[in-house]
Amino acid sequence: MIRQLFDPANAVTAAGLVLSVIAISLALSGRVELGVAVALWALLADHLDGLVAQRLTTRAERTGEVGKNLDSLADLVSAGVFPGIALLVVGGSAALFTAVAALLAGASALRLSYFNVFGSPDGRFIGVPTTYAVPLTAIMFLARPVVAEQLFPNLFAVALVVLAGLHVAPIRVPKTTGFMYFVVTAFCALSSLFLVLRGFGF
C-alpha cells in the first residue's frame, strides 16, 4: 500500500490530505482563519494531482484507480468535513449547526461516490463539485469582519446548506481547465495570504 504513495500524483493527493488535517487542527484550536488558509492549499493540491497524473505516461492502471479513490477521500476531508468543523467552532455545537455539518458531510460523500461510479459525462460534472466548499468557506471568512458576530454563523450555515443541495442537484458543471486553473490558483494564494495575516492579527 505504501508503495502507491511513491506515485507522484498520489503523493500530491496525500500531501493535500495532510494539509486538510492540519487545517482541522487549527480550526479546533480556535485559529479558524489560519485553518481556512491551509485548506485553500489543500485545494491547490487537489487541482495539482490531476495535472501530474495526466503527465504520467507509464502509470499503472491500478495505481491510477488507487489515486482516484484517494483523491475522493481527501476531498471528503477538506471539503466535506473541514467546513462543517469551522461552522461548529464559530457557531458552537448547537443542534442546528451539527445538523448542517452532518448534511454537508453526507452530501459530499454521496457526490463523491456517485462521481466514482458515473464519472463526468460529456466532460461536465453532475452536481457542483465538493471542492467548491473550500473557496466558499474562504469567501465567508474573508467577509467575516463586516458581518455582525451573532449573524455570521447563521449565514455560514445557510451557505453550506445551499451548497450541500447543489452537490447532489442534477445540474452540469464544467470542469476546471485552462485559464481557470490560474484563476483558482490566484484566488487560493491571495485569499490564504489575507487570512494568514488576519489570523496573526495584522
Rank of each mutant, 00 (worst) to 15 (best):
residue 2 I to P: 09
residue 5 L to M: 12
residue 6 F to Y: 15
residue 7 D to Y: 09
residue 8 P to A: 10
residue 9 A to T: 09
residue 9 A to W: 06
residue 10 N to W: 13
residue 10 N to R: 10
residue 11 A to E: 11
residue 11 A to N: 10
residue 13 T to H: 01
residue 14 A to Q: 08
residue 15 A to D: 01
residue 16 G to S: 05
residue 17 L to N: 06
residue 17 L to F: 12
residue 20 S to T: 12
residue 25 S to T: 15
residue 26 L to A: 03
residue 28 L to I: 11
residue 28 L to P: 00
residue 28 L to R: 11
residue 31 R to Q: 14
residue 32 V to E: 05
residue 34 L to Q: 11
residue 36 V to L: 10
residue 40 L to F: 08
residue 45 A to L: 10
residue 45 A to F: 11
residue 46 D to Q: 13
residue 49 D to M: 10
residue 50 G to Y: 02
residue 53 A to T: 13
residue 54 Q to K: 15
residue 57 T to R: 15
residue 57 T to S: 09
residue 60 A to H: 15
residue 62 R to I: 14
residue 63 T to Q: 10
residue 65 E to S: 03
residue 67 G to M: 05
residue 68 K to G: 00
residue 68 K to W: 05
residue 69 N to L: 06
residue 72 S to W: 11
residue 73 L to V: 04
residue 73 L to S: 02
residue 77 V to H: 01
residue 78 S to C: 04
residue 79 A to Y: 02
residue 81 V to A: 09
residue 81 V to H: 08
residue 83 P to M: 08
residue 84 G to N: 13
residue 84 G to E: 14
residue 85 I to G: 00
residue 89 V to D: 12
residue 92 G to L: 03
residue 92 G to R: 06
residue 94 A to Y: 10
residue 95 A to M: 12
residue 97 F to V: 04
residue 98 T to G: 11
residue 99 A to F: 07
residue 100 V to N: 00
residue 102 A to R: 05
residue 106 G to C: 13
residue 116 N to F: 09
residue 116 N to P: 03
residue 117 V to I: 14
residue 122 D to R: 07
residue 123 G to N: 04
residue 123 G to Q: 07
residue 123 G to C: 02
residue 123 G to I: 08
residue 127 G to E: 02
residue 130 T to R: 00
residue 131 T to W: 02
residue 133 A to N: 11
residue 135 P to W: 09
residue 135 P to C: 04
residue 136 L to K: 09
residue 138 A to G: 05
residue 140 M to S: 01
residue 141 F to H: 04
residue 141 F to G: 00
residue 142 L to Q: 03
residue 142 L to M: 13
residue 142 L to D: 07
residue 145 P to D: 08
residue 146 V to F: 06
residue 147 V to D: 03
residue 148 A to C: 00
residue 149 E to K: 14
residue 152 F to R: 14
residue 153 P to E: 10
residue 155 L to Q: 02
residue 156 F to Q: 05
residue 158 V to H: 03
residue 160 L to K: 08
residue 160 L to D: 05
residue 171 I to M: 04
residue 171 I to Y: 05
residue 172 R to S: 07
residue 174 P to T: 08
residue 174 P to F: 01
residue 175 K to C: 09
residue 177 T to M: 13
residue 179 F to T: 13
residue 182 F to G: 13
residue 182 F to S: 15
residue 185 T to R: 14
residue 185 T to G: 10
residue 187 F to I: 03
residue 187 F to W: 06
residue 188 C to G: 01
residue 189 A to W: 12
residue 193 L to N: 11
residue 194 F to E: 06
residue 198 R to G: 02
residue 200 F to H: 15
residue 201 G to K: 14
